[in-house]
Every structure is written in structure tokens, then in C-alpha cells.
Amino acid sequence: MVRREDGNWEVTRPGASRASAVAPTQAQAITRGSQILTNDGGGELRIHNTDGQIRDQRTIAPGNDPYPPKG
């Protein structure tokens, strides 16, 4: 999810040309992005800073975590 010029946050799927959802806060966009991934069968949720850099990445089950915890 990335911040738009109007201050809202948009949730997009990789390679998509349009936003799947738009939210006024990043927290709401994270929640909506998690819901979308859960409905799609899981995956990676990438959260961006206001400057576009990835600040966090979360695996939504049953996604494929590239760095699973050991033990």
C-alpha cells in the first residue's frame, strides 16, 4: 500500500493498474489489505512509508513466508 497525492492510502495487488481499496489512514489500509489477502488465500502484504520505501512486510496465512521462523 502506498500513499496517494490526496493523502489517502491505496491498496493494490502486484501488477494491478487500479487500487483494490482506498482508505483515509494507513492503519485502515493495512486492515483492508489483510482482509483482501485472506480472501485470496494469503500472500505478502507490503507496507510502504510516505516516501515509497517498503517499511514492513507481513505474511498473511496461508501465504508462503520466504523467511519462516525456526523452532
Rank of each mutant, 00 (worst) to 15 (best):
R3A: 15
K70H: 01
T25S: 15
D56V: 04
A16D: 14
A61W: 02
T38P: 05
E5W: 00
A61F: 04
D40C: 10
I60A: 06
T50I: 02
D56N: 14
G52P: 12
P24S: 10
D65K: 03
R32C: 05
S34L: 00
T25I: 07
R18A: 13
P68H: 00
T50M: 06
N49R: 15
G52W: 04
S20L: 15
T50V: 07
R32N: 10
P68L: 01
S20M: 13
K70F: 01
G7P: 02
P62T: 04
Q26V: 08
A16W: 02
Q57V: 15
R13N: 05
P14H: 05
P66K: 00
N39V: 00
T12N: 07
D56Y: 05
G33D: 04
A21R: 09
L45D: 03
D40S: 14
A27E: 14
A61G: 05
V2S: 14
M1V: 13
N64K: 12
A29V: 10
R13W: 13
V11C: 11
S20K: 12
D40K: 09
T12G: 05
N8M: 11
I30G: 01
N39Y: 00
E44P: 06
R55V: 14
L37V: 06
V11D: 06
T59M: 13
N39D: 11
M1H: 13
G43K: 11
G41R: 05
T31W: 00
K70G: 07
P24F: 00
S20T: 08
G63N: 09
R46L: 15
Q35I: 03
R3F: 03
Q28E: 15
Q28D: 14
W9T: 05
A21N: 12
R58Q: 15
A61I: 04
Q57R: 15
R18I: 04
G71W: 01
D65C: 06
N8S: 14
A19Q: 01
P69K: 05
D51K: 04
G15M: 10
V11F: 09
P66Q: 02
M1A: 15
